[in-house]
Design a binder for these strands. Structure first.
Length: 298
DNA sequence: GTTGAGCGTT
């Protein structure tokens, strides 16, 4: 190890910033990400070959090439600049990412009052975001509303928000769903949070944060206390979280399993049907908690 | 002229 700080920049021609190394000469990815949010690694131009080279990254720790950071300027890697990274996760995940593309679709609006018009619908939903179209389905002969309709938004974020809640329209509670799906206000808006199963007790929040940073920006890490062999990691981008679901990852030599973090009101009694002391105490214990479980455990 | 879980005439 040659010096206490190494120089890191967003781009080869940008002004570098000095990042502190650890005592053992390594650099924590979290140190880089503190200055460059969302960073997932480093690269540098090899003086001999003039090619860009990646810096070795093991579980959130960056290792100096040939044990010497030298006097080079290192360049930050970001997940979105690197499609190859996503492809490596696996083919199924890549499909998920593509399918989860931020394109809006029609939403069915269930439970409309008979009197609600398309103009009423448009006026209501415009308060959430720009509306592309609204429909109220009617009996062709009578012109009476069938009590449901459709809406489409410009922004995917608006769609997500609208699906996630119930709607009071002209005095009735209505639900907006993706057509032909059961997903409603309760259920799975695609989560930015993943469930990390098979954790060991020596895994810290910092270590988990450093590890998962390589996939995308991490906004939260939660480890239930006392130890319960799982954790939750939240990403800034739901697509990153979804892409990891189903994966087995190696953290500190341990194979952990990634699945979707489900909303916390999933029936806990299905998880532990024979809990000692009866289901009431179990329910009380969990209803007060923040814990969430993946559907694969239910 | 009624109704209240569902799934879209053109």
């Amino acid at each position: 190890m040659s010096e206490l700080y190494i120089r890191v920049a967003e781009d080869e021609n940008e002004e570098p910033m000095e990042i502190p190394s650890e005592d053992d000469g390594t650099i924590l990815l979290s140190s880089v990400a503190a200055q460059f949010p969302g960073a997932c690694g480093l690269r540098y131009r090899n003086p001999e070959s003039q090619c860009m080279r990646g810096v070795r990254l093991v579980e959130g720790v960056l290792h100096a090439p040939e044990n010497d950071w030298g006097n080079l300027v290192y360049v930050v890697n970001y997940p979105k600049d690197n499609k190859r990274k996503m492809d490596e996760i696996d083919a199924a995940s890549a499909v998920k990412v593509k399918r989860g593309f931020q394109k809006t679709s029609d939403l069915i609006v269930l439970g409309l009052p008979w009197k609600t018009s398309e103009q009423d619908l448009k006026d209501y939903f415009t308060t959430f975001g720009e509306v592309i179209m609204v429909q109220v389905k009617r009996d062709l002969k009578t012109g009476n509303s069938k009590g449901f309709g459709f809406v489409r938004f410009t922004e995917y974020e608006t769609q997500t928000k609208v699906i996630a809640q119930r709607h009071m329209i002209d005095g009735r509670w209505c639900d907006c769903k993706l057509p032909n799906s059961k997903a409603g206000p309760d259920e799975p808006m695609r989560s930015r949070k993943i469930f990390v199963g098979r954790c060991t007790e020596d895994m810290t929040t910092d270590e988990l944060r450093q590890y998962f940073m390589q996939y995308g920006e991490v906004t939260d890490v939660f480890i239930p206390k006392p130890f319960r062999a799982f954790a939750f990691v939240t990403f800034a981008d739901d697509q990153v979280a979804q892409a990891l679901c189903g994966e087995d990852l190696i953290i500190k030599g341990i194979s952990v399993h990634i699945s979707n973090a489900e909303p916390k009101h999933n029936n806990i009694h299905q998880l532990f049907p024979n809990f000692p002391g009866g289901s009431a105490s179990l329910a009380a214990m969990f209803d007060r908690s923040q814990y969430q479980f993946p559907s694969s455990h239910v």
